[in-house]
Design a protein around this nucleic acid. Structure first.
Lengths: 172, 172
DNA sequence: TATTGTTATACTCTATAACTATA
DNA sequence: TATAGTTATAGAGTATAACAATA
């Protein structure tokens, strides 16, 4: 039992890989059959930001518009959202969450919260906050969706490189 | 651009999901065609821990033995490892890394290091160490592969000091 | 061990249709 | 109208990863 000197254990991306495996294993054990994060993300996005076209959803979530079709199909069929047409621009859909969808979303987010509590049990609340903040800093550096507008948080002043521009590479 | 109150942005597992997407996008941009982490893990495991049977590798890496078949096939075909028989128990294989495989592994780990440096550029070295340590604490709590040999209770304190000598750029 | 098959996710490429703006 | 450009949606195809059933 001595594989400590494994250089991969020093790699944050390897540890991220293992973290995601752990999340998946735990999720399927706690909520078998449930939990499809992309579906949840789409529903959450639509529920929060009123009527949206599929293209807007795809952009906000950085999802492939093609993949969105099946997800919206499933959510519509389950009665969680409605696909109407935008009366002003009949090319686009106007997606809106149903009351049922909002209830489902609430339950799903509660499940998610319990999952997080189980997984991060060994960390203190402050450590969890710190963990999230570190991830948000990394994400913001590469993906403008995560840049904080400014305001209540804390001015991200990591003295070191602050390229000022948003994501140096907006992938695609 | 103001969807800050999104409850999912508060969910560490959602942020992990986004981190992994970021890793994948960055990796395929920096090293297209390369980088299959499971292959790297298997090769690393075999290179470090001498001759191993496929079952031993599967257990150590918590991988499906069935999935291992194709991975070992590929690594063998590429000349990175050899599949011999264990002379003491001819039912099992004795997997061993070739010299070529060790060189390839070294290069791959170097690529991985550069990938990590690019991704975690916005964090200070101490923050990266802290980030890894938090993940290791969570992993150790759910998966005995990550328990540190000496101190099962409280792994290395998240002390701010600890320049940790060479640890700073061993970010593989 | 190996084989086979299934599921989930992600990404790419191509195609069609519906609309907008302009000539 | 006619034409060109944009947007929405769809579908095929590929790739990785995890997992289950069975030989």
């Amino acid at each position: 039992m001595e594989h400590r000197p494994d250089p991969l254990h020093e790699s944050p991306t390897y540890l991220l890989f293992e973290m995601v495996r752990l999340v998946r294993r735990t999720a399927t054990r706690m909520y078998p059959g449930q939990l499809r994060l992309p579906h949840l993300l789409v529903l959450s996005c639509v529920a929060q930001l009123g009527p949206l076209s599929q293209r807007e959803v795809a952009e906000r979530l950085r999802m492939d518009p093609g993949d969105l079709v099946g997800i919206v199909d499933a959510l519509e069929e389950a009665g969680h959202l409605e696909r109407r047409r935008d009366p002003d621009d009949r090319r686009r859909y106007a997606l809106e969450a149903t009351e049922d969808g909002r209830l489902f979303l609430g339950r799903s987010l509660d499940d998610r919260t319990r999952l997080n509590e189980t997984l991060f049990e060994p960390l203190a609340p402050g450590e969890i906050r710190l963990f999230k903040e570190l991830m948000l800093r990394v994400l913001a550096h590469h993906d403008e969706r995560f840049t904080v507008p400014d305001g209540p948080g804390q001015p991200p002043a990591p003295a070191a490189g602050r390229p000022a521009g948003r994501g140096s590479h907006a992938s695609r």
